[in-house]
Design a protein around this nucleic acid. Structure first.
Length: 383
DNA sequence: AGAGTGCGAGGAGCCATTTG
DNA sequence: CAAATGGCTCCTCGCACTCT
């Protein structure tokens, strides 16, 4: 900053806060009962607690309302809201000195967290050291101004957080929207003729015979190889792949045509997507090729099936689907004109959904950026 | 349908070195 | 000399399959 606002002082963190490191426990000191030992994972919402029966100096305990900062692996300030606890190593208790408001310190640390990685040490595991932390510069306004800034941030963040929660709710809703429209379409189509899936389409399992599965001979750069995860993460069309089979790989597998409907029957049960290119896949994926049906219409119907499977899975012990069950599923077969029009209308609806989602997502990103820039401005004295 | 596997990221243990 | 600190190494956990 070129020029400090009037009354603000150029300080370092060491001038306004004191950092007290937590106690490092040995495994055998951690028990099932006693005073809770607060570790970083507990600050992040983890429910796996350790306890201790050691009598420790007063400084090792923290109480509700006190400010903590995680300085290893994951970083950030927390206002502790639980009962009396012993805070573990890799957590500092932050004690505010006379010249800083505690909530102001909290907001500053939140602001600082986004650039903390510029100050860390370590190769695999990142830490910020106490000595580095203490040298972090802070522009410190007089106390009344700090209190004004804090109350302004409290108000603004309160509103923004409300909007963020609302948007996240909306995004969830939008995600479910097309699914419920789909369900309606196929419920309304009750009077359509129905035929078993293996009558209207070829239903065949993928192939990958060779063992071990990770044999280097199998791989090369010729034939895309799709796994269940690729089907799950696809957005209607599978348009990217991680791995390719070699000629040898192809020989023990099978190449499916672009446009084949892929349905997963292992691990992620019932995920559906359409191949965007010729590819191989293992037998945890079933390839479905309609005889004369509209490919997208069948795809959409199979998508509703996934919802049904998910619903059943909630009450039953575990999802279960095999080739036989799948082959015998009744598929609604309206006239080809109706199929075409539904597939056409629905894919336009889906496109609309993608658009809405991307607008909502960018609003969400905007709000998060807004919070960050508000903090920026607050600590430059521009709020 | 449950057990097993591989993997990567996050999290904790621990000890040599530094500090007071 | 004890306590605090820095930071390297190893462990754990959860996910996403994968096997039996």
């Amino acid at each position: 900053m070129d020029k400090l606002p009037k009354g603000w002082e150029n300080k370092k963190l060491i001038d306004c806060i004191e950092l007290i490191n937590g106690r490092a426990y040995k495994q055998e000191e951690l028990l099932d009962a006693g005073t809770p030992v607060l570790r970083i994972q507990n600050l992040n919402g983890g429910s796996n607690w350790y306890y201790s029966n050691l009598e420790l100096p007063k400084k090792n305990y923290c109480y509700a309302g006190e400010l903590l900062f995680a300085w290893s692996a994951s970083f950030g300030p927390y206002i502790w809201s639980g009962e009396k606890a012993i805070f573990h190593y890799h957590i500092w208790k932050v004690i505010s000195k006379q010249n800083i408001n505690e909530k102001f310190a909290y907001y500053f640390l939140e602001h600082f967290t986004k650039e903390v990685r510029n100050h860390t040490v370590g190769v695999a595991m990142f830490h910020i050291t106490k000595s580095k932390m203490e040298q972090i510069p802070i522009y410190l306004p007089p106390l009344p101004e700090q209190i004004r800034i804090v109350s302004k941030l409290d108000t603004l963040f309160g509103r923004i957080d409300k909007s963020i929660a609302l948007l996240e709710e909306n995004i969830k809703h939008t995600n479910g929207l097309t699914a419920s429209v789909l369900e309606e379409i196929f419920v309304d189509g009750k009077n359509w003729e129905r035929q078993p899936l293996n009558q209207v389409a070829k239903v065949e399992r993928g192939k990958s015979k060779h063992r071990p599965r990770n044999d280097q001979k199998l791989f090369g750069d010729s034939y895309p190889f799709i796994q269940t995860g690729d089907v799950r993460s696809a957005n209607k069309y599978i348009d990217k792949y991680e791995v390719c089979y070699s000629e040898f790989g192809l020989k023990q597998s099978r190449l499916w045509n672009k446009g084949t409907i892929c349905l997963t029957i292992a691990a992620n049960i019932g995920d559906v997507a359409i191949l965007g290119f010729d590819a191989c896949f293992p037998d945890s994926v079933v390839g479905i090729t309609p005889n004369s049906m509209n490919n997208e219409f069948l795809y959409y119907y199979l998508k509703t099936l996934q919802l049904q499977l998910d619903k059943k899975a909630n009450s039953a012990a575990q999802k279960n689907i095999n080739l036989k069950i799948l082959s015998e599923i009744d598929v609604p077969v309206p006239s080809i004109e109706i199929q075409n029009s539904i597939a056409d209308r629905f894919s336009r609806l889906e496109e609309k959904q993608f658009q809405i989602l991307s607008v909502q997502q960018s609003k969400l990103n905007y709000l998060k950026a807004l919070k960050s820039s508000l903090l920026d401005r607050a600590f430059k004295g521009e709020l």
